[in-house]
């Protein structure tokens, strides 16, 4: 693994919703310039983990280090200020707003008190061009009139519009066809090649094999293992996802609190 300090580092993270202990002593390291695939079965706590990194709901306990400095992330604005951008599983788009409005939502460019629509539209157009988006008829189209793939692209474009350092994508290919999946994966790879840290949540082993550098596997809210992709086979990853262990990798003692 790279020698430098991780871009994002989580240690001993806990998170409960009422009586449900969703995340238990989770550790995670994300390095710049690498794609970290976060895998795990449905309900393992992947979305919960990244929502907390994004400041949607705070962790109950544990340390978060970003660029070597300890941080506490209280809200989405603060996560954005650090350079963390998230493409949510549900995309979090406003159907009644157009593409430009969605991309700049909460961070509108203004001149005085008025919105600077021309600047926003130009920057949105440039970003989409950079992502090879070829299917949007108009940037002033309401998001409600877009197809699933187009909506996914808008959500991703929103994340890369800013000078982000860490981009998190929650199952970005789940609803896409073959060609669009390929496009999104290429994009993910390119983000990392440009020096960003990327967390890619995915169910799809092909996706993981295609773009991941590191693989972190959550099993029932515990981090079963974080390994480099080259050290494990697809078969082993599947075992990690389904049982939390694979040979001498993963949780050796399958009781509560026994994170690797």
């Amino acid at each position: 693994m790279a020698n430098d300090t991780p871009l994002l580092s989580l240690r001993g993270i806990n998170k409960s919703f009422g009586p449900v202990h969703v995340l238990q002593n989770v550790d995670l390291d994300v390095r710049a310039g690498r794609v970290t695939a976060l895998v795990g079965d449905n309900g393992a706590g992947k979305s919960t983990l990244i929502k907390a990194i994004a400041g949607i709901h705070p962790f109950d306990s544990g340390q978060v280090t970003f660029e070597g400095k300890p941080v506490t992330i209280h809200g989405p604005k603060q996560a954005n200020d650090l350079g963390i951008e998230v493409v949510y599983q549900d995309l979090a788009l406003c159907d009644n707003l157009d593409v430009v409005h969605n991309m700049f939502l909460g961070r509108e460019v203004k001149s005085g008190v008025t919105l600077n629509e021309t600047t926003m539209e130009k920057r949105a157009g440039e970003t989409l061009s950079g992502l090879s988006v070829r299917t949007l008829k108009s940037l002033r189209q309401q998001v409600s009139s877009l197809s699933g793939g187009q909506r996914q692209t808008v959500a991703i474009a929103r994340a890369v519009l800013w000078n982000s350092k860490l981009v998190i994508l929650d199952e970005p290919t789940a609803a896409l066809g073959v060609a669009q999946t390929e496009q999104v994966l290429n994009l993910v790879r390119r983000l990392a090649d440009n020096g960003l840290g990327v967390i890619l949540i995915s169910h799809n082993m092909n996706d993981v094999q295609a773009v991941a550098d590191d693989i972190a596997c959550l099993y029932l809210g515990q981090m079963a293992a974080q390994v480099e992709k080259d050290q494990v086979s697809s078969q082993q990853v599947v075992e990690l996802i389904t049982t939390g262990r694979s040979g001498d990798i993963g949780m050796q003692d399958n009781s509560m609190g026994g994170a690797a």
């Binding site: 954005n80 979090a92 788009l93 406003c94 909460g106 509108e108």
Partner: peptide, 23 residues
């Protein structure tokens, strides 16, 4: 024409998305 107005539409369109956008 103002950010405040835009955010009203955003909250009406998708309250959770608006919240996640830091509104």
């Amino acid at each position: 024409r103002t950010g405040f107005g835009r955010h009203i539409y955003a909250v009406g369109g998708n309250r959770e998305a608006a919240r996640r956008a830091g509104i």
